[in-house]
């Protein structure tokens, strides 16, 4: 499923235009992206949460050559599946 599929389904089920549906879907992901870039935690009940982990700069080694290199500080976003969704995913697979 792609962004365009979400837009089509939303338009169809909510009886709104493709244009409006596009605006809504883009709005939601833009806002979530903005929050992630601000290092903010996002919590969507029933879906999951996003959080950003920061990594300190450190000295690393090239495992092949043994050469010492600087690993730059970085931030990475993570997603954790919500409890309800986790349950549904397990049930869905065992009730087939």
């Amino acid at each position: 499923m792609k962004r365009s599929d979400i837009i089509s389904i939303l338009a169809e089920e909510m009886k709104i235009s493709q244009k409006k549906s596009t605006e809504i879907v883009d709005f939601i992901f833009d806002k979530m992206k903005g929050a992630i870039l601000n290092g903010e935690r996002i919590e969507i009940r029933g879906f999951g949460s996003f959080f950003v982990k920061s990594y300190q700069p450190r000295k690393g080694r090239n495992p092949k050559t043994g050469e010492i290199i600087d690993v730059l500080p970085k931030k990475l976003p993570f997603f954790k599946v919500g409890k309800d969704l986790k349950k549904k995913l397990i049930e869905g697979l065992n009730n087939e």
Partner: peptide
């Protein structure tokens, strides 16, 4: 709705 569409896909 947007989140439930995604959940349906996951399921």
């Amino acid at each position: 709705k947007v989140f439930s569409i995604m959940i349906q896909s996951f399921l």
